[in-house]
Design a protein around this nucleic acid. Structure first.
Length: 491
RNA sequence: GGCAUCGUGGCCGAGUGGCUAGGCUCAGCUCUGCAAAAGCUGCUACAGCGGUUCGAAUCCGCUCGAUGCCUCCA
């Protein structure tokens, strides 16, 4: 695949920019991963699937991509002011588990879910607890640089001081003066000089069991620090792409920029990318409000939200029919529409194998292919890509009916391009049954029933033929009579 | 309150200053023993009000509405 002009929307400049990697042909990409103190919900998955698409497309373009996505298994403060509890510790008390047992349980869950979605694993998946030394090291450097202060065993980043020489707020568009003006005086007991300051290191209370020694206290790292430590460790002080959910833009990513600039004296990231939220009932999916659905509950259909189960690949297809920067609302109707479209698209893909080539093409496959790439090169516009892929349905039908012709070369190109986008870039999967042994047995059994039914139809025994058809339908097997015989699909 | 985003046809959802996105639904037709499936055809929208322009859903202003962030969250 020859290198093409790729445009990426950069949250920093709020505009699409031509993508130029720091090192030609290679890309460093960091994405904020999950906090593993509960099951990932579907909203979390959307972000990771958005970046899976981006990862896959960059690789498809021929880049060597190092994709780093962390596991947050410690240290995110729940309340910056007084309690100092982090969610992992809280959950551990609740379930009478070791913190690392909680972490392990939900890390496994996360990996299992992402595998069901056929998401590629990142190149490196570092954990926060595995990088405590690196985080302490950064705190020391920031203190040396004069942008942090220690108070009662905790260390805080001095935002106002930093803002004198740097620009705190450039990513989220916030003005430091506005932030000061709008701060309410709630945390009276805070060790912070200013409410805008954020913790780099937090002294652990006696009952706090996740703790590590440091020059300042036995404690734990502040919740923005791990990403700075791990991204720069594996990708360098400056790297190409940093991604995450829109909700992390402020304060998390803003603080990451500040930490990295204070520590390394260069701005860390060239392209900031933010994936938008998946909403349910018009509201952001969120653990804390209970407004969410678990992936497994939608695969099995065990939920009160959807009319039926939906497979991981259909769910993913549904997500990719919206652009990653748009809010996407989740509903049964929308999922069903996507499922039907997905099936039609996959049917068309299979039809390509049966197409007969002609001397010449009456369809413009080269042009179509370019349109597909243009869509993805325009900030990974998967909905447009999918719209183009649907044109294949029309091509396949028209060629089958002899209304259009296609040359051997174009047919090969069409098949290859469809395969590339469907499976390599979008990472979709054909239904599990199609390739499995059980699927073959089912095929054989239904084929027999189809044969019997056709015999009955030939004998004009419609009572029998309809009985076969209707009983299969009631079991979720739908027969489809076509010109070239009968096929079936599972509902 | 501050910062930001968004409001598109029955539903979902792209989009650019001027040329039908696409999917689903629906209607008609073809096919069919009937039905389903499949195919073909049709369905021209852009919150409201002003403004800029030869021309705006697309740019600007205001109004209304929604969402996200400002506290853990993808």
């Amino acid at each position: 695949m020859k290198q093409q002009d790729l445009f990426i929307y950069n949250s920093l400049s709020k505009s699409k920019e031509k993508f130029v990697p720091i090192t030609e042909g290679a890309i460093g990409m960091y994405v904020c991963g999950p906090t593993v103190y509960s099951n990932v919900h579907l909203g979390n998955c959307r972000t990771f699937l958005s970046f899976d698409l981006i990862f896959r497309y960059l690789k498809h373009l021929g880049y060597k991509v190092r994709y780093v996505r962390n596991i947050t298994d410690a240290g995110h403060l729940e309340n910056d002011g007084e309690s100092g509890d982090d969610p992992i510790l809280k959950k551990a008390r609740l379930e009478q588990l070791e913190p690392m047992e909680v972490v392990q349980k939900y890390t496994v869950d996360f990996h299992t879910v992402m595998a069901k979605f056929n998401a590629l694993p990142p190149s490196i998946e570092p954990t926060a607890t595995g990088h405590i030394y690196e985080q302490i090291d950064i705190v020391e450097k920031i203190i040396e640089a004069g942008f942090a202060y220690e108070k009662n065993g905790s260390v805080y980043f001095d935002v106002l001081k930093f803002n004198e020489t740097n620009n705190y707020g450039k990513l989220s568009g916030r003005q430091i003066d506005d932030m000061i003006a709008n701060t309410r005086e709630l945390a009276a007991q805070s060790d912070k000089k200013n409410p805008q300051d954020f913790a780099l290191w937090k002294k652990a209370e006696p009952q706090h069991i996740m703790r590590w020694p440091s020059p300042w206290s036995d404690g734990f790292p502040g919740w923005h620090l791990e990403c700075t430590a791990m991204s720069t460790k594996y990708l360098g002080n400056q790297f190409d792409i940093h991604g995450g959910g829109m909700d992390l833009k402020f304060p998390h990513h803003e603080c990451e920029i500040a930490q990295a600039e204070a520590c390394n004296h260069v701005t860390p990231v060239n392209y900031w990318m933010h994936a938008n939220m998946l909403t349910l009932n018009g509201k952001k999916m969120s653990k804390s409000t209970g407004n969410f659905i678990l992936p497994d509950d939608m695969f099995t259909g065990e939920n009160n939200i959807l009319s039926k189960p939906f497979s991981p690949t259909v769910t993913k297809f549904f997500m990719y029919q919206a652009h990653y920067r748009s809010i996407l609302d989740f509903s049964s109707d929308a999922l069903e529409a996507s499922e039907k479209g997905f099936n039609r698209l996959m049917d068309a893909y299979r039809m390509l194998s049966d197409l007969n080539a002609s001397e010449k093409s009456s369809v413009d496959i080269e042009g179509w292919r370019k349109a597909c790439y243009d869509a993805m090169n325009d900030d990974f516009n998967s909905p447009i890509l999918i719209a183009h892929l649907f044109e294949t349905v029309k091509y396949a039908n028209a060629i089958t009916e002899g209304k259009e012709t296609i040359s051997e070369k174009d047919l090969a190109l069409l098949k290859q391009t469809m395969h590339d986008f469907l499976f390599d870039v979008l990472g979709l999967e054909e239904s599990v049954l199609e390739n499995s042994q059980d699927g073959e047995k089912l095929n054989a059994a239904v084929a027999l029933l189809i044969k019997l039914r056709n015999k009955a139809r030939a004998d004009k025994d419609f009572a029998m033929s309809d009985k076969i058809r209707d009983e299969l339908a009631s079991k979720g097997i739908q027969l489809k009579d076509g010109k070239d015989g009968t096929t079936f699909s599972l509902n």
